[in-house]
Design a protein around this nucleic acid. Structure first.
Lengths: 234, 234
DNA sequence: GCCGAGAATGAATCCATCC
DNA sequence: AGGATGGATTCATTCTCGG
C-alpha cells in the first residue's frame, strides 16, 4: 500500500482521510504525535459503552448536528490491544526521542498507560487538563479533568520549553463544538508544546511548522480542511 | 488478636500505632477511609526506587530532619498485591456505601486503580491535587500533580456536598513539614470532604466528627498526637 | 508599606562513579 | 555486571530581605 492522496494539503500542512493503521506505516521522520482517540468509555457497563456516541455522551439541547464517530465501542481488553497497535505504528513513524501525547479520561487512563508501554514508548507521565467546572457527582468528587498520557521514543530530546503538567481551561459550550469531544484550541496549543513551541495544526500552518493530520471520518476531514483554508480561524 | 491500646485517644479521635493489617480487622462501622500509603515510587528504574526515602525524594539543604519512612520500596507487582490486601481489609471495616480515597503519584496510579478494584471497592474516579508548580522535566510536561484514586463500598450514598475533582494548592516549603510527603492541611480538608464536610483528624476533633488514625511509625504517631493535644494547631 | 532583585524550592530525573 | 550512592541539572513561582 502506498500513501493515498491527501484530503487537504498546503505547504505546511497535510490531512489524510483514512485509517491510521493504513497511513502511519507510510510515514517516517515524525517529530511528535499528538492524538485524541475514541475513549471507548462513557459508562461503567458494556451495554453503556456500546451505545451510539450521540446518545451515550451527553449533549444538551442547543447542540448543532454532530455525526457519530467510529471506533468508540471496544471493551477494555480490545481497547488495550487496539491502542497498543496504533501506539506501535505511530512509534515506527517517529524519530528517536520523539514525543507522544494522547488524551484520555479517567476510566481508560490505566489501559492507556499499559498501551503506551506495550507500543514501545517510554511512558513518562500523566498531564492533566482541568476543565474547572465538571459534572457534579453525587457519589463524590466531581468529574472535572481529562488526562494526557505522554512519553518518548527512547531517551528524550531535551527542549527549551517546559509545559506545565496541569493546564486549566474551561470547556467550550456544547453548541460551539463541531465534534462531541472537541478540545478547546488553548488545550491543543498546550498539548502540542510537548513537541515544540507551536500550536494546533491550524497554527502550525501559520507558524511554519509542518503537520500531518489523520482522520478516519470524512466529515471531520472536511471541517478541518475548511478551517485550514480560512485565513482567520475565528 | 484484639485491638491494641491506642497511642492517643480523646473523645473524638483515636490513633493506633501499628500495622494497618493488624488494626483494620478489629475495626468496623467505618464511614470513610482516607489514606496516603508509601508510593514505592521515586524513579523510573528499580535501583532508584530502592533508595532510601530521605535520598530518593528531593530534600534540599535547609530541610529539617525527617526520618525515613518504611515500606516504600516494593516492586510494582508486590505493590499491587500489598495495596489490594489493605484495600480489602479497609473495606471489611467499612459500612456499605462508605467511600475510600488514596493519594498516589502518576507512576503508581494504574497499579492503584487495579488494587482498589481487586480489594472489592467500586472504583469511581481519579481526582487531582494540582501543586501548581512542579519540578521542571526536560523531557516534557512538568510533574505538578498528585492523584487521588477513590471509590465506594458498593452503591454510593448520595451526598449534598460535591468536592471538586481538581484541587489546586501549593505545596508547603520543605522546612515546614514533619514528613517528606506531608500534605498541606488544605489538601487533606479537601480529601476528607469525600466522607463528609470536615477536615483532618485534628479538625475532626474540633468539628465533632469521629476519626481513627493508623500509623506504623511511632515517631509520626508522636507528631500527630502532639498536634491533636494542642488547642491551636499553628 | 511597596517594590525589585536575588535566593530558595520541589514524593524529580538522569548519569557518573564506586564497590 | 549490577546494585547503591552522589550529585548536577531543570524553571516558574514564592520567599526573603534590603532600599
Amino acid at each position: 500500500m502506498t500513501l493515498p492522496d491527501p484530503y487537504y494539503s498546503d505547504s505546511k500542512c497535510t490531512i489524510y482521510h483514512g485509517d491510521a493503521f493504513d497511513i502511519l506505516p507510510e510515514l517516517s521522520g515524525i517529530g511528535a504525535v499528538i492524538t485524541d482517540p475514541p475513549y471507548s468509555s462513557g459508562g461503567a457497563f458494556r451495554g453503556d459503552r456500546a451505545r451510539q456516541t450521540t446518545t451515550k455522551y451527553v449533549q444538551t439541547g442547543t447542540a448543532a448536528y454532530r455525526p457519530e464517530f467510529a471506533g468508540d465501542n471496544r471493551d477494555q481488553r480490545s481497547f488495550l490491544a487496539w491502542c497498543a497497535l496504533w501506539m506501535n505504528a505511530a512509534r515506527n513513524a517517529t524519530e528517536p526521542g520523539a514525543a507522544i501525547a494522547s488524551f484520555i479520561d479517567w476510566r481508560q487512563l490505566p489501559v492507556l498507560t499499559d498501551a503506551i508501554q506495550a507500543g514501545g514508548w517510554t511512558w513518562r507521565g500523566v498531564a492533566v487538563w482541568s476543565k474547572k467546572y465538571g459534572r457534579p457527582n453525587p457519589a463524590g468528587f466531581s468529574s472535572a479533568a481529562e488526562f494526557v498520557v505522554w512519553g518518548t521514543n527512547g531517551p528524550a530530546v531535551d527542549r527549551d520549553d517546559y509545559p506545565a503538567g496541569v493546564f486549566e481551561c474551561q470547556s467550550p459550550p456544547s453548541r460551539d463544538r463541531s465534534h462531541i469531544a472537541q478540545k478547546p484550541e488553548k488545550v491543543m496549543n498546550w498539548a502540542v508544546r510537548l513537541a515544540a513551541p507551536g500550536a494546533t495544526i491550524r497554527a502550525a500552518k501559520d507558524g511554519g511548522y509542518k503537520a500531518v493530520g489523520i482522520e478516519v471520518d470524512e466529515r471531520y476531514c472536511e471541517i478541518a480542511a475548511t478551517r485550514l483554508g480560512q485565513e482567520v480561524l475565528f
